[in-house]
Design a protein around this nucleic acid. Structure first.
Lengths: 242, 242
DNA sequence: GCAAAATCTGCGGGTTCCCGCAAGACAAGT
DNA sequence: ACTTGTCTTGCGGGAACCCGCAGATTTTGC
């Protein structure tokens, strides 16, 4: 058995190495990668079936790396080990995990024991281990309780990228008005209608920009989600040109 | 001599502790704080003159903590130790450093030796030590080479928060048209005018939202800057109400 | 002190956005 | 079949935005 560690912080990397050694004495080889790109390469080369992966790395982030790895070998077991439980990350991960795969999502703030337990559960027992906090977000996101539909989310990303209504309509094969309907739902859910001004004066927000702002503040979207979306957009545009 | 470490990651904290011990054998006491709020408290309590501070902490981030600490004791020497060199952070720090204070900005990716050298230079020699990469950004930011004025930056933040033109005008005591002029400069500098569409079709961006998007992608603004700005906004509003 | 440059301001227009109203499409449920 | 609900689309108008133009004000450089 071998384990691949993908993590860009050297300190965390060696801590993980230690933890893996301690939790999985049957592990013969521990590989390390400093970013997603290298991680992908090693995963391919060693056909690693067991991976511990950080999200938020510079070169190529964890979600992208995991996606391509899972695309090639869906039975790979991946434990995501992250600092944050941003809804953007959680959604990004749930989006790419293959049917029936064993994976995990543990926060870096979790205790030593939690991490080791998760390592054994996932890699040995093939069970899913999702941090409670993260689990909560997942539920909220999927269940309709104050959560956002996938379509809504898409549109949210689109306005965050700065696309116009017309562009969004084209991208999604919708009429202009439909897009605007979606936007209204979004504004509703993001609770963006409160006045900002005082007295009787009418001081509203710019709804479109405000929506992006509160989405960011609520960590519904974050830097890496934006980055990915921007890359997608460029791709898509390139395709059209050709 | 005593040193206060403010850093929310336990691993990094103990690494720092180690480094301080090694680099400053004359140091008698090393204090640790897990977030900005606690850090402020300890700084006040122990009148610490030497602080190593992470930016990006949950409870209260490094910039806010440093600002209040410096406000009380401007001669405090602070070494900022951060993962990132986002322009938003760099600008945030330059903004609050008192006249003639000795401080430093070192990236976590720097070598062990660099860190130790910086510790001695700042705490013993009272010199400023700024990472080269960071230094570059500072120049660019202050010098007029492709950099942003403070006023422009303010307005950028305002639209990122979702304020309307009229609101911005009021906040800055400007006419509506002036604000729009500023916005045009911004759009120019952020290079937001490229078409997104193909063929002869007119596919522009929504300039306002797009500007925010590219500012985020270029790390001109980041989560913590947004968060601070939002808090400011709420304060300001509260004041007006009263 | 004066000219050049940069900023601030009002006006007017074209465009995009925000959204109420209303009519059609499709699914599900009793 | 009738209702109920959700989703889509068109129309139209009011508001906000983007911006060229042109005059007023301030700043800067020499």
């Amino acid at each position: 058995m071998e384990v691949l560690i993908v993590e860009d912080d050297p300190l965390h990397r060696s801590y993980l190495h230690e933890a893996v050694r301690a939790a999985l004495p049957e592990c013969e080889l521990v590989l390390e990668a400093g970013n997603g790109r290298i991680g992908e390469g090693l995963a391919r080369q060693y056909r690693s079936a067991h991976i511990v992966m950080d999200l938020q790395m510079s070169e190529r982030n964890g979600i992208e790396a995991a996606r391509t790895i899972w695309k090639e070998r869906p039975e790979t077991r991946i434990l995501f080990w992250s600092n944050y439980a941003d809804e953007a990350y959680v959604r990004g991960v749930s989006r790419i995990v293959p049917e029936g795969a064993a994976y995990g999502y543990v926060l870096k703030s979790a205790s030593d024991d939690r991490l080791k337990l998760a390592l054994r559960s996932i890699f040995i027992e093939a069970q899913c281990v999702i941090d409670r906090e993260v689990r909560g977000l997942q539920q909220k996101s999927l269940g309709h309780v104050k959560g956002f539909t996938d379509v809504e989310y898409e549109i949210l990303i689109d306005i965050a990228l700065g696309l116009t209504d017309r562009m969004i309509a084209r991208r999604h094969n919708l009429s202009l008005r439909s897009v605007q309907n979606r936007l209204q739902q979004l504004y509703e859910k993001l609770d963006v209608y409160q006045r900002v001004g005082e007295d009787g004066d009418e001081g509203r927000y710019n709804l479109r920009s405000r929506a992006v702002a509160v989405a960011l503040l609520r960590k519904l979207i974050n830097y890496s989600a934006l980055e990915r979306a921007e890359a997608d957009l460029n791709n898509c545009m390139g395709m059209k040109e050709a």
